[in-house]
Amino acid sequence: MATTHAAAFTHSRSWSADEFAALLESPLTLAVGDARSFALVRIIAQEAELLTIATHPDHQRQGLARRIMETWQREATARGAAEAFLEVAADNMPAQALYQSYGFAECGRRAGYYTRKGAPAVDAVLMQRTLR
């Protein structure tokens, strides 16, 4: 996961193998996908939060992210989640379009949340949708 994350997130800090391992230790964390494309989701009570989603650049434009989106939402619903949340960089228009195609809508912003290597920080767009 760390290798794919690093390849996919070249303009911001990617997560380390230790960070992934710590998240995966929790029974509240759901992982879906494989080395090409994956998502990590935390489910607490009736809320699912997409922590990260990544597709290795060698495997982009093959529909993998769409399958991952469908899988994690279906699994979160099966585990009792009724609402889903995520955050995405304001300048990541392809990701926002993907999320909107699954019914996510903006519900807030975090100013200057994402730091960029050699560039100004970018807002996080908070998005939400009902799963049931």
Rank of each mutant, 00 (worst) to 15 (best):
A81S: 06
Y114A: 02
W15I: 04
A31L: 12
A119R: 06
G112H: 07
V125D: 00
R109L: 09
H56W: 10
E83S: 13
L64F: 15
E25S: 13
M127D: 03
E106V: 15
S12Y: 02
L51C: 08
A45H: 13
D91T: 07
H11T: 01
R129M: 07
L23D: 07
E19I: 15
P27Q: 11
R67D: 08
V88K: 05
E70M: 09
L24W: 00
P120N: 08
P57V: 14
A65N: 01
Q46G: 14
T55S: 10
T29K: 03
Q96E: 14
T29M: 10
D58K: 10
R61L: 06
T29G: 08
E75N: 12
A90W: 01
E19S: 11
L64D: 04
L40G: 02
R36Y: 00
F85V: 02
Y99Q: 00
A97R: 14
F104W: 09
R67L: 14
K117R: 09
G80V: 09
A48T: 09
W15E: 04
Q96W: 03
R13Y: 06
G118Y: 08
A111C: 03
Q73H: 09
L98C: 01
Q46N: 15
K117E: 03
G63N: 11
A89F: 04
D34Y: 06
F9Q: 02
P57D: 14
L86I: 01
L50Y: 06
F85D: 01
M93P: 01
Y114M: 04
E47G: 08
E49A: 08
R13I: 15
I53T: 12
D91N: 14
F104E: 04
E25M: 12
T3R: 06
A6Q: 13
H5E: 15
R109K: 08
S37T: 11
P57H: 06
H5N: 13
L40I: 13
A6G: 13
M93H: 12
G103M: 07
A81Q: 02
R66G: 05
G108C: 10
Y99M: 02
T29D: 09
G112F: 02
Q62P: 00
A121F: 09
I53K: 00
A6T: 12
R61I: 05
S101A: 13
V122L: 01
A89R: 03
A2F: 05
T115E: 10
L40A: 10
L23P: 02
R132T: 06
A22Q: 10
K117I: 06
W15Q: 06
A84D: 02
P27R: 05
E70R: 05
G108I: 12
E49K: 04
E47V: 14
L126N: 03
D18N: 08
R74N: 14
A22F: 13
F9C: 01
D18L: 07
L131F: 04
P94Y: 12
T10W: 13
M127Y: 05
H5C: 13
M1F: 13
I44R: 02
R61S: 14
K117F: 03
S16H: 10
